[in-house]
Amino acid sequence: MSFNKIILLGNITRDIELRYTPTGTAIAKTAIATNRKYKTQAGEQKEEVCFVDLTFFGRSAEIANQYLGKGKQVLIEGRLVQEHWVDNSGQKRSKHSVHVETMQMLGNKQEAQKQTTQPTQPAQQPKQNIPEMDIDDDSIPF
């Protein structure tokens, strides 16, 4: 049995590139940046940033194109894949990326209301969304 699931929380690093296959399937590509803050043994604060390419398919690709953009915070769940291709100079290349299966757009309530309410309504104090994850204990590999 094998298990391939990845969950990332971060910010979109570039605007969505949306394309369609000849059969009409939408494919959207972008990237996410995640960060981790830690303290070294010497007590120095450090930050580690990881950039990961994302690929959305079908309706999810169209939704991502409509609502996600550079800087938007998103929680994604998907599977890790290794892509292979030959570059312009004939060299074989590969990279890891994530094929997104589900996503949750995050941000504060005020940002969400900007998209759905009239400008005459008073703005509410922002609340940070805390993502909820439904994880089956049997699917945890440790």
Rank of each mutant, 00 (worst) to 15 (best):
D53R: 14
F56R: 09
K95V: 02
S2K: 04
G90T: 05
L80W: 01
C50L: 14
A112F: 09
R36F: 05
R14N: 10
N35P: 00
Q124W: 11
A64M: 12
Q45D: 10
M1R: 08
K39G: 00
T117K: 14
S97T: 01
Q104N: 13
T116K: 03
E83V: 03
I32P: 01
F56D: 06
E83N: 11
A26K: 02
E83Y: 01
Q66P: 01
G69V: 00
P131V: 14
L54I: 05
E101N: 13
F51V: 08
S60F: 03
I12F: 09
E101T: 11
Q128F: 01
I140Y: 06
D137P: 12
T21V: 11
G10E: 10
M105P: 06
Y20A: 07
T120K: 09
E77I: 08
V100Q: 02
A42D: 15
E132W: 06
F56K: 05
P131S: 10
N4F: 15
I12C: 06
K29Y: 05
L8C: 10
E48Q: 08
A31N: 08
H99T: 09
V98I: 13
G107D: 09
G69M: 10
S60Y: 10
S94G: 02
L54P: 04
R36N: 12
Y20S: 10
D137W: 11
L18M: 04
G71K: 06
P141R: 11
L18I: 06
I16H: 03
D136Y: 04
E17H: 03
Q91I: 09
T102Y: 05
T21H: 06
K95D: 08
I76K: 04
K46R: 15
G24L: 09
Q124H: 11
Q104M: 13
P22C: 06
P22M: 07
E132Q: 15
T30I: 05
T21P: 10
I27T: 03
Y67R: 12
S97F: 06
L8F: 00
D134L: 15
L68F: 08
C50Y: 08
K92C: 02
V86L: 00
F56Q: 08
Y67I: 12
K29V: 04
K114N: 09
N11F: 01
K5W: 03
K109R: 13
K70D: 10
A112V: 03
Q45P: 01
F142E: 07
P131K: 05
S2G: 08
G90A: 01
D138N: 13
A123R: 12
N11L: 07
L106Y: 03
V81T: 13
Q91A: 14
W85G: 07
N35S: 15
A26E: 06
G78K: 00
Q91D: 10
D136V: 00
